[in-house]
Design a protein around this nucleic acid. Structure first.
Lengths: 123, 123
DNA sequence: TTCGCAGTACGACTTGCATCGTACTGCGGC
DNA sequence: GCCGCAGTACGATGCAAGTCGTACTGCGAA
């Protein structure tokens, strides 16, 4: 995994740490809808979030605040929820923070090649 | 899989017939934006149109009416224009009719794998 | 030249979404 | 206990998009 910087091409995802909180409500893998996923990615800010998360998520999950986005917190909540409800990201509550990562396995299984397009996206 | 007649996986597109009208205004290949394309595909009716066109377009282009969609004509005009302005389809005016086909070459070049996802989409 | 047809243009209505301020919650540190 | 912080919930607002009826255009056939 560390030999190539593009972990999103790998089918395997790093294991969930023991004791991690349950993910927030999200669609199951077989409930993912391509048109809903694409609708979530049709917003440039959300595309940016997913792409950044994808290319930086090898080490650990990230909080909303980590991105340094210049938007009010309530706007970020809205976009992260949209991404989670579309099935693009998984969110877990760690104490104060809500950490996110891309659902690489599920997305690769259902929509192979989609994440490669996201990774190649240019702002 | 590679023996099946899925022309959308081929880089080449059938040639334009001599004397065909000029295409209606559309974004150039290098102006295509992934988030705009995905926004156009986020509507189930438009996804259906593109997918149908993709899987049936080997023979000839198709008119709006060919699809047999149960919507008023003005709604179809709206959706076909959205698809054309996003760069998904090319439209030409043949006398009375406006015929459409998917821009396979351009989309494969800019967003490889995207059309495969569309072709695998289930209503 | 008159009619019918494919599709557009326009406008009105409605819905959904992005945006954001403000109040609130829940956890951890002091 | 008390406070600060991350993030949510709620509500208001403005705007873009979907929907559709109706009038219109432009071509071809009778």
């Amino acid at each position: 995994m560390s030999s190539t910087p593009r972990a999103w091409t790998e089918p395997a995802q790093r294991p969930v740490p023991a004791g991690a909180p349950e993910p927030l409500p999200e669609p199951a893998r077989d409930e993912l809808r391509l048109e809903v996923v694409m609708g979530a990615l049709s917003d440039p800010l959300r595309m940016h979030i997913v792409r950044t998360l994808l290319l930086e998520s090898e080490e650990f999950d990230h909080t909303c605040g980590w991105f340094g986005l210049d938007r009010p917190k309530s706007s970020l909540t809205h976009h992260f929820r949209t991404l989670r409800e579309a099935g693009l990201i998984r969110q877990r509550q760690y104490g104060l923070e809500r950490r996110s990562h891309v659902r690489v396995d599920d997305l690769q299984a259902r929509f192979p090649g989609l994440l490669a397009l996201v990774a190649d996206w240019q702002q």
